[in-house]
Each structure stands twice: as C-alpha cells, then as structure tokens.
C-alpha cells in the first residue's frame, strides 16, 4: 500500500529538483570523507605501530639473502623502503575510501534494520560487524604476514584463496542477515542466534575445507605473531574510527532526509 504524504507544491518541487544535490551528493561526500579521514589516521598509526615490524622483517630477509650468497643491492633496498614508507599514508587513504565505499552502501541499505535510533551508534555497530566479517574472520584462516613470509611464485594462488575466503565471509553474513529479516519471525535474540548459527556453520566448514597458506615461515614466529597483533589492532581501530566518523557526519547532514515532508 503506498504511503500518502501531504506536501506543498514548493516542497515537492524542491524535493524533486534537488534530489541529486540534496541526497546523493551528501551520501557520496560523507562516505568518501569518512573513509579518507579513517584511512589517513590508519596510515599515521601504522607508521608508529606496524612499521617497526616490517623494518625488522625486511632486515632479516636481507640478512638471509646475503648469507645465501645472493647479490644484494643495499642502496636499492634503502630507496625502496623510502618509497614504501612514503606510500603508507596514501595507501591508507585509498584503503580507507575503498572500504568506506562498501560501508556506505551497506549502511544505506541496512540503516532501518540496525539497532537504536542513533545514526552514530548504528554506524559503529555496523563497522564492528564488518570488521569482524571482513578482517577478523579472514585473518583467522589467512592471517597477515610481514615481508619475508610469502614466495613470489605463489602470490596469485594466495590472492585467490584470500579473496575466496573474504567473499564467502561477506556473502554469508549478507545472506544470514537477509534470511532473518525476511524469513524468520520471532524475538530479536532468536533472530540473532539464527544469523550467528548460519554464519558460524558456513565459515567453520569453509575454514576446514579451504587449503592453508602454502608458504613456509622462515623468520622467528614471535615477530610474526606480534606483527599480526599490531595489524589487528590498527585495522580494528580503523573500523572504529570509520564508524564513528561516518555516523557523526550522517547525523549532521542526514542524507536520508525525508522527514521534512510531513506524513498525515
């Protein structure tokens, strides 16, 4: 049954004429700006928290190559390191905008189904779920590794495995949400339990069925573990900052603004 609104002619004209600038544009700007802010902060934090482990891993890798009798050009490595560190913040911005684009789409479609009436809380809640689904769970199967772990000849195979697990995790979470919203009646706790059961079962099977990372680890395991904790810490912080920034901007600019048309 269609909803009936009473509006003045001016209000309607403004609504239609300004649809692009008043709704689509704020949505895009909020999404991109929040990703850029969160990504910039991620890049800065990584320079302090993650970079020391990357430096250490590259140092060990270089020592290993020298001991193996390889011809190592140290000047070239130093030059690469300046270039690589220089890209940390820019890489963070690109990463941030990329994930905020996905976040914005999911938020726009799921906003009504998210708990509470506060957009900031909704955004932080969704960011927590997406961090779990798109980072934490994939990292349990294919965790982050510092340089010196990973053979060049297996890169496309490993990328395929990583993307496969990532897509399974994201698609399963979406499917579980769609099922409980459209097919299941009952209390919220019952719906959440069913969604968690569906997601958990599919991911457990995927975890057991998908092949492991094929590369051997040849540097100290404590360096790898601390690197993984550092990575998990900064990426989790990134998602928190993204949710907070996005929710704050959404609350302020209200790109969903439809409330100015009063329903009788």
């Amino acid at each position: 049954m269609p909803l009936v609104f009473h509006v003045t002619e001016n209000e309607l004209d403004n609504e239609v004429d300004n649809e692009l600038s008043m709704r689509t544009l704020p949505f895009l700007v909020i999404t991109i700006i929040s990703g850029a802010i969160a990504g910039t902060i991620l890049g800065i934090i990584n320079l302090g928290i993650v970079e020391p482990y990357i430096d250490k891993a590259i140092e060990l890798e270089t020592q290993k190559d020298i001991q193996a009798g390889q011809n190592v050009n140290l000047d070239e490595i130093v030059g690469y390191r300046i270039w690589q560190k220089g890209g940390e913040i820019v890489g963070g911005i690109i990463y941030g905008i990329s994930l905020s684009s996905l976040f914005g789409i999911v938020f726009a479609y799921s906003r009504n189904s998210l708990p509470t009436s506060n957009d900031k809380v909704k955004a932080i809640f969704l960011a927590s779920i997406m961090c779990f689904v798109l980072f934490i769970v994939p990292a349990l199967k294919y965790p982050a590794n510092p340089p010196a772990v990973g053979a060049p000849e297996t890169i496309y195979y490993r990328q395929g495995l990583f993307v496969g697990f990532l897509v399974i995790s994201g698609a399963t979470a979406l499917a579980a949400a769609a099922i409980i919203l459209k097919k299941i009646d009952g209390t919220t706790s019952k719906k959440i339990s069913i969604a968690c059961a569906i997601y958990g079962a599919v991911m457990l099977v995927s975890y057991l069925v998908m092949p492991p990372n094929p590369d051997k680890i040849s540097i100290p395991i404590d360096l790898i573990i601390t690197f993984r904790f550092a990575s998990a810490l900064t990426i989790s912080m990134f998602w928190g900052i993204l949710g907070l920034t996005f929710g704050t901007l959404w609350s302020k600019f209200k790109p969903h603004k439809f409330e100015k048309i009063t329903a009788f």
Partner: peptide, 10 residues
C-alpha cells in the same frame, strides 16, 4: 607504494 599498507591490512 602501497606495499606496507598491503602487509598491515592482511
């Protein structure tokens, strides 16, 4: 250029 972020992001 994106090498270090790539490692850090998993």
């Amino acid at each position: 250029f994106t090498h270090d972020m790539r490692h850090a992001a998993g």
